[in-house]
Design a protein around this nucleic acid. Structure first.
Lengths: 233, 233
DNA sequence: AAGGCTCGGTACGCCAACGTACATACAATG
DNA sequence: CATTGTATGTACGTTGGCGTACCGAGCCTT
């Protein structure tokens, strides 16, 4: 995690604020580079910074002892990482893991509290995003319960695609298994099936989406449902 | 759903407010009887009232086509039903189903918005509860993914017990199957196992907890985890 | 070129949970 | 007391996913 100067501010949440509020916030925000694998929060630990992703992507994971991690939320430029702070809580219930390398705007927790208090538009935006996140977690809960790995994988790839704005990215199957909460072998099988159907291409951590429409058809409807929540794009 | 006069206000959220705020709120709140099976919200539909349960219990369920309902949250006297409104959203993403007959304090959505705006203590309390709910949904997501039906059933019974404040309540297995998102037969087997271990007693919808400690041991740790979140009791 | 390392593919036995169907028990009602 | 309906129990074959183990393929380093 290093300071990244002069990155374009592409976070939608910030971009949608009135100019005055945005300017004031930007004075307290520092652009920062987030790299794949970095852990921003650990469950039960204090939240020290909030992050407004630009082109980076952050996964929210629950940890249950004796099991793999399980992703419950995915935050990109449409949101903020650190929602508990907006709710007056300074401890994270989840692990926050950088899943897509990129930049974000960062602010310290103490500074955030102050700025949040002073900007009603920011409050409105963050409360709305809290709702989107809640809906996302809810849908994911059901998805993890009911749908096949293959469909869930397809959904996950699409969600990532929407946030990194690219059809190609790096991800090992081992990593994916910790997102979906399944065995690596399960991912291998599912990815193999998708590849055979010419929907994706997969090779040593390099994944590319070949047929987006087809992949959407292979994914469960959860993808569309979450996407259609106002404020989730 | 009928007006219920002169019920003791036992909702913790309300009780913890400063006297002044509570008094003002109570002027707009109407005690109401909620009966098992009533549906308060449907997904995608507008929220018309918020509810502060006293001794009633309300389930939040996601619906996925082609599958049974799945509970993602349980709200009793520790919270409020209608959190989206506090976040500035007037559509429910979930179905809200009365799971434990009892009373609640009710307020119209429009009235709530006004009162909410005017009471900072209420805002604080509700944002905190939003966080608790989010954590609960998150934990439930992992629980539904990883744990056996028997452990999940045990957890569910304990959570209900904590909210109805009684070791005995009415619930059919069919109903439970829609809470846990499993077959009715799955519930039969799990309940049978718990009964054989002398932890519960089960007969035609009448369930009683015989050995609470034992049931806690049979439940997954998710029960303790959710319970230990500050503000969840 | 060799060795090590990461990543992906395959194989095997196991089992919780699934869908479905049917059979029993209890309760209320006429 | 017979009838009807609801609630529970049992049974059977199917299967997706699990844990584990091992192998091969590509890549980097020495």
């Amino acid at each position: 995690m290093s300071v990244a100067k002069r990155v374009p501010v592409a976070n939608n949440l910030l971009a949608a604020l009135p100019r005055k509020d945005r300017q004031r916030l930007l004075a307290s925000l520092v652009p920062i580079a987030l790299t794949f694998g970095e852990i921003l929060y650990e469950p039960g630990k204090a939240i020290r910074y909030v992050y407004f992703p630009n082109d980076s992507v952050v996964s929210l994971l629950t940890l249950v002892e004796g099991h793999r991690a399980l992703e419950v939320g995915l935050v990109g430029c449409e949101g903020m990482v650190g929602i508990p702070l907006a709710l007056g809580i300074n401890v994270s219930p989840v692990r926050a893991l950088v899943q897509g390398t990129g930049t974000a705007m960062r602010m310290s927790a103490t500074r955030f509290r102050k700025e949040f208090h002073n900007s009603v538009p920011l409050q409105r935006a963050l409360y709305r995003f809290t709702h989107v996140l809640m809906a996302q977690v809810t849908q994911t809960a059901a998805c993890n319960r009911f749908h096949f790995i293959e469909a869930r994988l397809a959904r996950w790839l699409l969600m990532t695609r929407d946030r990194v704005l690219s059809n190609q990215f790096r991800l090992t199957q081992e990593f994916l298994s910790h997102m979906l909460g399944v065995r690596r072998v399960g991912v291998t099988k599912a990815a193999g099936a998708l590849q055979q159907r010419k929907l994706i291409n997969y090779s040593r951590g390099n994944i590319s989406i070949l047929d987006r429409k087809g992949l959407e058809a292979a994914a469960c409807r959860c993808y569309q449902i979450v996407k259609s929540i106002p404020g989730s794009a």
